[in-house]
Simulated assay, not measured.
Amino acid sequence: MTDDPLAWLVSLEGVPSAYAAARDGIDVLLRDRGLRRTSPETTAESLLRGAHASAVLEGSGSTLEEVREGAGDPIAQDALRLSTELLGLAPLLSRAPLQAFARMHAVAARGSVAEDRLGRPRDGESAARLRDVAALLTSDTEAPALLVAAVVHADLVSVAPFPSHNGIVARATERLVLVARGVDAKSLVVPEAGHLANRAAYESNLRGYAGGTRNGVHSWLLYAPEGYAAGAEASPLRS
């Protein structure tokens, strides 16, 4: 019997190879294309692209150029505001994920919900389920970091613990897991853009995951590496 809460997911058919391939692709991108010419500006561009993609998935109609110019709609502005503070939360996500979740929501939802609701779960059940998600991030799991990111992302969307901006927080957390666990320390991959490029599959598989069936969870886990591969292609290192 194992105490690893994600061990059963790693054993599902096709999952280990899919995540190994996705990680190899990211490593090749960062090693061959990034290390010699990475700059803070490249990271900022990746975060900008991610904010735009996440906002569109949340219902924004703004273009990337509008967001780049600071003229996006409120959803885009919320996602962009979170992106500017996100990387500073990586240490907090590792040691106190509940605080990191609360801070991400407070930043993204500022001006959209009442001050006393910023960073606070909707109700007791949401708070309990959010603690379960946080426990995954502090568990002693041997699951690949990409799989941890995918599970936490889908869990946050499914739980929808906050009164607003749950998708934006979930996708920001996914990116932050990749930073905190050393997959993409400089945050140059754009997973949000990968999901936008595969929007129909992304949204369909999230719904399947939320249904809680083994097949639904399995399908999400097989989809997510495709999103990460597309996110690597969307990196500014490819420009």
Rank of each mutant, 00 (worst) to 15 (best):
R36L: 15
D116N: 13
G208Y: 01
A55N: 05
P236A: 04
E69L: 14
R122W: 05
R120Q: 12
A185W: 03
S126V: 07
A201C: 02
S46Y: 06
E13W: 09
V152K: 07
A160D: 12
R120M: 12
D140E: 13
G231F: 10
D116Y: 12
S158A: 15
L206K: 03
E125A: 15
L118G: 05
V179P: 04
V56T: 15
S83Q: 12
A114F: 11
L30H: 09
L30V: 11
T42S: 12
H218C: 05
L206P: 01
L12W: 04
V152M: 07
W220V: 04
G70F: 02
A230W: 03
E45H: 09
V133W: 06
N198Y: 08
E13Y: 08
E115Y: 08
A210Q: 11
E115K: 12
D78S: 15
D24F: 13
G167Q: 01
S187G: 14
S139Y: 01
T2C: 04
V177P: 10
A224V: 01
A55W: 00
T43Y: 09
E142M: 09
P16L: 07
N166C: 04
T141A: 07
L176Q: 09
E125D: 13
S112I: 11
Y223C: 03
A185T: 13
V133T: 14
A201M: 09
L206V: 07
R238N: 12
R103W: 02
G216C: 04
T43L: 11
V179Q: 10
V183L: 11
R31N: 11
D3A: 13
L93W: 00
L206G: 01
V152S: 09
G208C: 02
L93N: 00
H105P: 04
A193I: 08
N198V: 06
A224D: 03
V217F: 05
R120S: 07
G61K: 11
L47D: 05
E192I: 02
